[in-house]
């Protein structure tokens, strides 16, 4: 994916993996089933409102807590095209890259972007544009090694290609 564009769902600090996908649903590994309950304990309306391509913007430490890969899987399967946050918890960050969910760290964007704004992202340049306000932000670029995993659409494809 080279770019993304969608409507923003906005959350605060420390959005943990238990609210992204509550453990009561972890008896399933089916992405579509998990997506039905994505963000359920923090935003009951998320699942009914989210459209293909929409974007999550949050403050610091997004994805803290459990190592469950079900969390980025649920977000991706719900149709979200990118998560922008001030910072990410490290296992969530790793898992997202490994499964090919685009995520970007950008404090300024997370500070300025409001719920409901239309935001576009150019993944090659890392530029985030809030089309509602006209403001642009430079997201942090991935190190080349991680960019290769992302370009391969996940860790397994990357390893297979080597």
């Amino acid at each position: 994916m080279k770019s993304a564009k969608g409507t923003v769902f906005r959350y605060g600090d420390n959005v943990d993996t238990d609210v992204i996908i509550p453990a009561r649903y972890l008896n399933s590994t089916d992405a579509k089933e998990l997506a039905k309950h994505c963000m359920e304990d923090i935003d009951k309306e998320f699942v009914s409102k989210v459209k293909e391509g929409d974007i999550i913007v949050a403050d610091k430490n997004f994805g803290c807590g459990s190592s469950r890969e079900h969390a980025p899987i649920a977000i991706k399967a719900a149709g979200v095209s990118c998560v922008i946050a001030k910072s990410f918890a490290r296992i969530f960050y790793r898992n997202s890259i490994n499964i090919g969910l685009p995520i970007i760290e950008c404090e300024e964007a997370a500070e300025a972007i409001k719920a409901g704004d239309t935001v576009s992202i150019d993944f090659d340049s890392g530029v985030i544009t809030d089309e509602t306000t006209g403001k642009s932000f430079q997201g942090q670029a991935f190190p080349p090694f991680m960019q290769k995993i992302i370009d391969s659409e996940g860790l397994i494809n990357y390893i297979n290609a080597q």
Binding site: S67, E69, P72, I91, R94, N95, N98, L155, I156
Partner: peptide, 24 residues
């Protein structure tokens, strides 16, 4: 499992990762 960091008590480097890293 995120609490894999437990084994540091014995002087190991241990850390939690996700399922794809586990597969790899």
């Amino acid at each position: 499992d995120s609490h894999t960091c437990t084994y540091g008590a014995l002087g190991a480097f241990s850390t939690g990762i996700g399922s794809t890293d586990m597969a790899a």
